[in-house]
Design a protein around this nucleic acid. Structure first.
Lengths: 216, 216, 216, 216
DNA sequence: AATGAATGAGGTTTCATTCAT
DNA sequence: AATGAATGAAACCTCATTCAT
């Protein structure tokens, strides 16, 4: 919708550019409507080509979907991993920074739609699920867990098993993304994502206070 | 009693038992395939009846779905509301009880699939989303919020806005349900839901400690 | 199997044994909705019986329809025929009286619905059409034609072939009936049937003036 | 020209010819079976295409029907309106011409079946009825009324209200069309439509003679 | 390489008809 | 005789996929 129309004249498109344009159009449709409800005709039209052309590049709807997912899971996790490694200072700040960055770079962008898409369709596309799990989820969890472990090691967080706590800790961010792409249109219970993130981080850090400390 | 010769009737009259059987079959199919992908014929066959019979009991697919939700989920919430109203004792215990009950009656059963389904398809079925939001989400959130408010009022929880904290607090349970019906088959990161719930509740209650108290 | 070889005329079967209520209910539904759109369940409910009961009395929908038509074509034409035979006075008055009576006793009553029904379904039920044609149309036309012939014989109407003029003359009354049961709900172009009838008779009588007379 | 070996393609591309072919097939089916009873699959097969193809050209059954009406009937009325506007000479001749043309272009063709169909099914398809009333009936009536008004204005017809007389005047033509598609097969009372039309027009014009004139 | 007309299987819903009770 | 639960054959419409151009 907010995507500017490609202004290049049709006959000048380069062969190599085609698949990218198709994937971009498909991404938008899939994110907007889900897998089943996305009509290939809409994808084609939104990419400015005919339905038949899609089949020149992708065997069928399923393969197109898989290609979309693979293409768009270019995790910016790598950067985050480096940022964590280089960070100096209190772990609470690190955790806050990491989560806020996540929200800003992923959760509040179109990529959040991919997350929702994956949750919604993982069951129907097991190999995609495996792929996504390895490339994204496992690494992201590892990153969070490493921050937790750092906090524990430095005595800033209460002792706990970071691997176990990570999914719990991460859940609200993911839910916020999913919420935005599901129920918000019919009832925006969570109308201020920023406030949500702040409250969430506050509550989380309180829960991590080491024993013996006095609650502020 | 001498058994008469097996006459193998073309069909059987089971007026009273039917609705329950149909709802059970529908629940299974919906959870397994999602709303859009569930074919009424499959529901019917899985209940051992013909397609037409479904329409004797439910006006259409949407009403069938709503009936499944009402039968299984809404009723649970009703019980929980009563349990909360009748509860006496510390709010931490109440919160723990309510969340555990939720997990046991919904989260750990097939019903969890309904939650995942709704998140996945809410976008494409606004009427369903509205219904589910009103009948389930709003009521469930209200219930949790009331427990939080109770804790604040009794000085057991730190002061906060229960309406704002509820979605945050509730997120891990929902994520656990969604997880179960999406990525768990390919990588059971959360392999012990019970431990997950305990850790989650522990972390949550820690986060709710009132200011000035000493972290245990 | 127990069907006697003797082929009794269909429309004389067990007339007295048939529940009049079923036929009455069916008549109303057929007139209101037409053949195809009438649901046997509605007929049954409106007669206060179950769907199955209908099948105890009528083989199927088609036979029910035929029975309804046969039952309700009790032409009051007999009376009219006698009235015509006994009439003394100018033929214009006779024609006016006959047409007005037709409108009042048939056209403005529920029987008009039967006329429309027959026109609409004649093609799909040829034997009914034949039956209706013999019992109603032919006799009614004969009656009108006899009045025209009387007028010609007495020098009151211009010379013409009554058999040929009758369908022309009769058309507006029939159209008025059909109109009432088709387009009037969406656009009551003919909102005053009485005025319609008066204008129609006036125009008709003018058209019948004998040559040489001066138009009033 | 040597005919190439028959390759028998699964289907043929005929973009330009298709709509006409489909409309022709639809007209035939609608007239033959009625609106409700016409199955789009039959229309398709009768046009030599598949069900889906129909939907490439027409949004749904209703739009297909409207297109048939527009293509065949509405266009005729347009021509007639122009003919009336351009006509010079006595109004009796105009009226005769217009009615005869109507008979020849619509009444005596398959299109007459559409008129019958609309009368038969208007009740059950209010949208169709509204459409037909606006596009056909109102315009046709307006046309006739304008001719009557012209005759009155020129002193050729007796003074009267054209709006009121039109439905009366038009009835015999419509009845003739309906007749043809209902009872004629079982009893061709009206066996010579041309004679019918002539007698009808004669009778009508006689009825329109201005006061004081001498009946010929 | 690209098109887009054509296909046809598949989905929801309706309702005349059957038959166990 | 009466019931009404159950059936299943259509009917409309959609859309992934194919293929002649």
């Amino acid at each position: 919708m907010s995507e500017p129309i490609e202004s290049k004249p049709r006959w000048e498109r380069r062969k190599d550019a085609r698949p990218q344009e198709l994937l971009a159009a498909a991404l938008q449709q899939f994110v907007e409507r889900g897998y089943a409800a996305t009509r290939l005709e809409d994808v084609a039209r939104s990419a400015g080509v005919s339905k038949g052309t899609l089949y020149l590049y992708f065997e069928n709807k399923e393969e197109l979907f898989k290609a979309v997912v693979r293409e768009n899971i270019v995790s910016s996790i790598g950067e985050a991993e480096q940022a964590v490694a280089a960070f100096e200072g209190p772990s609470a700040g690190l955790l806050r920074a990491i989560l806020m960055q996540w929200w800003e770079q992923v959760g509040s962008t179109r990529l959040a739609g991919m997350t929702k898409l994956m949750m919604a369709e993982a069951n129907n596309f097991p190999d995609l699920a495996r792929f996504y799990n390895e490339e994204v989820i496992t690494r992201a969890h590892g990153l969070i867990a490493s921050v937790l472990a750092r906090g524990v090691a430095r005595g800033e967080f209460r002792p706990h098993d970071p691997q176990a706590l990570t999914p719990i800790l991460v859940a609200p961010v993911i839910m916020l993304m999913m919420w935005t792409h599901s129920f918000v249109p019919c009832d925006p219970k969570v109308d201020d994502p920023h406030a949500f993130m702040n409250d969430f981080i506050d509550q989380t850090l309180r829960g991590l206070l080491p024993p013996g400390s006095v609650v502020p």
